[in-house]
Design a protein around this nucleic acid. Structure first.
Lengths: 260, 260
DNA sequence: TAGTGGTCTAGACCACTTA
DNA sequence: AAGTGGTCTAGACCACTAG
């Protein structure tokens, strides 16, 4: 097989390193470098495409990050056998739910002060009896309820985040960067769950249906937990998807689709 | 606040760009660049740490990839407010299930030739009545059933992958790179599901329990679908987790934990 | 020993933002 | 106009792999 003989267009809007990366990607997708056959070496690519070493390196680095190739010093660059190790799912689409203002509505179901007890004490590092704020809300997309959100926040009047949180825009504030400057770090987990009767009614599905539960804990710059909560997403409406291997175009791997 | 005055250790095993990235990361985690305050400019970093521009750029690029900072041409580099947009979950731990040979056992429950019909025709681009191979297996971890795997493969004797697939090592072959060279591309989706009675018995859980369903479709270098299947993972045993924001150490974001 | 990728230099020019 | 990050050059030296 003879590899594409395209050249790098120096007048393109696309930088040279990206052009080279896509070019190599296309050659890979055509099966040009299967098995033990290595990609052209850096020196060869510099020659073939008339670019500098750093440009070649950056193109290769791009393919490395995309998980398409692997490199070994002293041996060469090889197409990576498609492996699950490299699979990642991202939540880009999920956040768009909150961005698309006209299509999405957030209804606060509850917002009140509670006394910490049990797991809540551990999660927010509170003593039993200390106050916390409990918020529950329902997110609708195109009039269809899609996500139920529950959250506990430390009750500390000195922290402006508390005031901001109670507002209708609490979710947006947390995730869209409004109050983000106050939050340093977060931990999230994603697991499968079944919805109980109360939430099923809210989400307009049958009790016992499958749902994705995305829980979160956020910390401030003093490493104190500030928020503990979770999103319960209708299993039939939300799904994560990703692509892997030598796809002809890079394409955003990992999207959360609002499926039919 | 006075920022760490550490220097770059040129004799370290850790390359200069990585040292600089971690150093900046630590300063960020201390809250040094909150709000509108930008990170030092490239020129300043070159001065302060006595490195070249490319080294500075690579350090910044690292933080960019980690989603910790964002850059704007003409303005500067800023700490990114923690946003969900950047959350990704990876499946590293999942593949380790198949790597750890002594802890994991795969039992083939079924492997037979079937006639394609319905959705299977669409998924594998087959005509109704054409033959496909159906495989079902149960993956145990420490004697506990954790994952049920189902899969359909195109039946084509010319393709060596078919032979390989029927073997006990089929899963390993697919994902661990054994036959990977034949597979060009894959699509995967992750969704919540509830397990039916038959699978519940196999997984030793109650029917109606929550589970994660990871489906996959793989294509060869001719862009023909080769395999369609899915992993049904006990919801109580497997969960995805990730960290985001300015964590002091990079840390592998996104792991699938075998809970408890 | 020859060839490979990994790191790094010391600049250059450009596009963009802000004042 | 000054400062910022984005791209790119044409090399250098090093660690590693293979024959």
């Amino acid at each position: 097989m003879q590899g594409l003989n395209e050249r790098i267009d120096r007048n393109s809007f696309e930088p040279a390193y990206a052009q080279l990366a896509n070019l190599l990607r296309a050659r890979i997708a055509q099966g040009e470098f299967v098995g033990d056959k290595p990609l052209p070496s850096e020196a060869q690519l510099i020659q073939q495409y008339q670019v500098s070493s750093m440009t070649v390196r950056r193109a290769i680095k791009t393919l490395l990050d995309q998980g398409v190739v692997s490199t070994t010093r002293g041996r060469g660059t090889f197409v990576k056998p498609m492996q699950m190790q490299t699979i990642t799912f991202s939540l880009e689409e999920f956040t768009r739910l909150f961005e698309a203002e006209q299509d999405t509505s957030v209804k606060i179901l509850q917002a009140r002060v509670v006394r910490a007890q049990g797991e809540l004490c551990a999660r927010l590092a509170l003593q039993p009896g200390q106050r916390a704020i409990h918020i529950a809300s329902l997110i609708r997309h195109h009039e269809t309820p899609v996500v139920y959100h529950w959250e506990y926040l430390v009750y500390d009047p000195r922290k402006p985040i508390v005031e901001a949180e109670i507002e209708v825009t609490s979710l947006r504030g947390l995730f869209m960067g409004g109050q983000g400057a106050l939050l340093k770090m977060g931990e999230m987990t994603l697991e499968a769950t079944i919805v109980d009767e109360a939430k099923a009614r809210l989400l307009q599905i049958e009790a016992g249906s499958a749902a994705l539960h995305l829980t979160h804990t956020f910390y401030d710059y003093q490493d104190h937990p500030v928020s503990w909560g979770g999103f319960i997403c209708r299993g039939d409406k939300l799904r994560l998807s990703t692509r892997l291997g030598a796809t002809p175009e890079p394409g955003p791997t990992g999207v959360l689709r609002t499926a039919e």
